[in-house]
């Protein structure tokens, strides 16, 4: 059952009691997190704190061992699997929910055998079955928006990292997603290219898009996000508005984390 995502009472993303282990290592120890529509969440934490895993569990690139993922009021159906871990119950549902979540990866992951425009229209045409003309029109508008309209027919390997990441953002936006998920989108970039990607992300935030951003960019977390979530060893240590968190966080670890 799908509940309209426009009603303010239904969170865009709801994570309840999320658990995940890789072998003997417990990466997520029961995470509860809610993102309302229009919110920009910056998810911070040291490497190994589980922030990327949490993001990847939301669109089921990692299968949670336990807990619930609810996207716009729709719970991802899980069933019990071996070793007490849960499994995806309905692949079709997962595929549909994934198409409603735009994912941006640390290493861009553009399809190397397709040009920029082909990358962007691929899923709208083949997954969402939209018309080619419409998909191309929208793709060109998105390319203009992220500032690489002139790279339309280039292959990813012919672009700089910053241009590739902006193309990847356009690709995610082309699905008209309800929520954008960013997994360390600037961590693989040369320092001088970080700015152009952050500018695009900031403009998306200003449009009122719902965004979950795993990042190390403190400036983005402080200036752009509506909430900062700090993870430590697979649990949420503290969360709050950037003002609260950066001015007077209760967590000693967070204060240490931001002071470097």
């Amino acid at each position: 059952m799908t509940v309209s995502s426009n009603s303010p009472s239904v969170p865009a993303i709801e994570v309840r009691g999320l658990r995940k282990s890789f072998g003997p290592v417990e990466v997520l120890k029961g995470i509860d997190l809610t993102a309302h529509e229009g919110e920009v969440l910056s998810i911070l934490g040291a490497s190994g704190s589980g922030k990327s895993t949490m993001l990847r569990c939301i669109n089921m690139l990692e299968t949670p061992d336990g807990g619930d993922i609810v996207v716009a009021g729709e719970k991802v159906a899980m069933k019990p699997g071996p070793h007490g871990k849960s499994r995806v119950a309905d692949r079709g549902q997962v595929q549909r929910i994934r198409s409603e979540l735009g994912m941006v990866f640390q290493s861009f992951n553009l399809w190397s055998h397709k040009t920029v425009i082909e990358n962007i229209i691929e899923a709208p045409i083949h997954v969402q079955k939209r018309s080619r003309t419409e998909a191309i029109e929208e793709a060109e508008a998105l390319l203009a928006k992220v500032g690489i309209a002139d790279k339309r027919n280039h292959y990813p390997s012919h672009l700089s990292g910053g241009q590739q990441q902006r193309a990847a953002i356009a690709r995610a936006l082309a699905m008209r997603p309800k929520v954008m998920l960013f997994d360390e989108p600037t961590s693989a970039l040369d320092p001088e290219l970080v700015g152009e990607v952050l500018r695009v992300m900031r403009s998306l935030a200003e449009e009122g898009r719902t965004m979950l951003v795993v990042t190390h960019e403190m400036g983005f977390a402080r200036d752009v996000s509506s909430r900062v979530v700090f993870l430590h060893q697979g649990a949420i240590e503290e969360q709050g508005t950037p003002q609260e968190m950066f001015a007077n966080a209760k967590s000693e670890r967070f204060r240490k984390f931001i002071s470097g």
Partner: peptide, 25 residues
Amino acid sequence: HGQVEAARSCGMSPFMVFRRITLPL
């Protein structure tokens, strides 16, 4: 692997991922 993951994250079925991304590459 990242390119396959990107295809899955767009909501492609395993068969479509294979046909559109994995096999051509």
